[in-house]
Design a protein around this nucleic acid. Sequence first.
DNA 1: ATAAATGCAAATGATTTGCAGGCTC
DNA 2: GAGCCTGCAAATCATTTGCATTTAT
Lengths: 142, 142
Amino acid sequence: METEARALAFEEALRRAGVRITRQRAALLRVLADAADHPDATQLHRRATEAGAGVSLATVYRTLSALEAQGVIQKLEFEGEPARFETADGQHHDHMIDVETGEVIEFLNERIERLQAEIAAEMGYEIVRHRLELYVRRKRQP
Amino acid sequence: METEARALAFEEALRRAGVRITRQRAALLRVLADAADHPDATQLHRRATEAGAGVSLATVYRTLSALEAQGVIQKLEFEGEPARFETADGQHHDHMIDVETGEVIEFLNERIERLQAEIAAEMGYEIVRHRLELYVRRKRQP
DNA sequence: ATAAATGCAAATGATTTGCAGGCTC
DNA sequence: GAGCCTGCAAATCATTTGCATTTAT
């Protein structure tokens, strides 16, 4: 239910921005709203297909670009793998990637955010966007 | 002269690791040691060629992989552009990218480094490597 | 009705690789 | 001399795009 509500909210926002909601876009929005992980284009294509929606991979890419341009989703480009996507409803956060399992953990630290802005400001810059990724491994218990 | 000394130090380290120093590798090491910016594979290929060394692009890529595996250089993958490379002699640092000019500025902040480790530790992880990039724009003076 | 979106297949761009001949240690 | 390296061209992989056709508004 949560999923459908979120998908509808996205459609609402998109329509308001003048973006047409086609059958394939509606399907992709649902797959995205339902994803607890951070799927890439191919996985999204497979999920949409399994859900019975006829969508081409080209359209998946085109839709993802459009959704990103609208700020509805966020593209994640981790090292050495195809881009992944996540819905952008909650607040900003950074990512931790378990190099052994590939699992992605989200986190947010206000102090780091503030420090970044300070560093940029000290050098005469303002931050447009930033990327912070921690490639980690589970600590073995002593 | 600084350049030649650094190039020799790299060769020394590589030879010690059992890596053969061919004419093309020696040329690339010099181009890398001499680079004040953060060139990509194509630029390195062009510079080596201009310096009179016959090197194929394929070899540039193969050499860069080898050098990275030896820890002699570091690969940088910024958003939306081919990978860039920098020599890894000094200490670790992060990067700020001026989105208007493409200029890359290096910086280091101990507090951020420490905070990252703390965050990972709190969640039961240890950091293998990390990536922090600030995409910035010059602040206009008020 | 009409501009925007789709599917297909072909194009792109960065990077990698198979293979035959060269070169370093 | 043996095996790692190189150059070349072809292959890969993710992503993009041209074009004719469909579809949402």
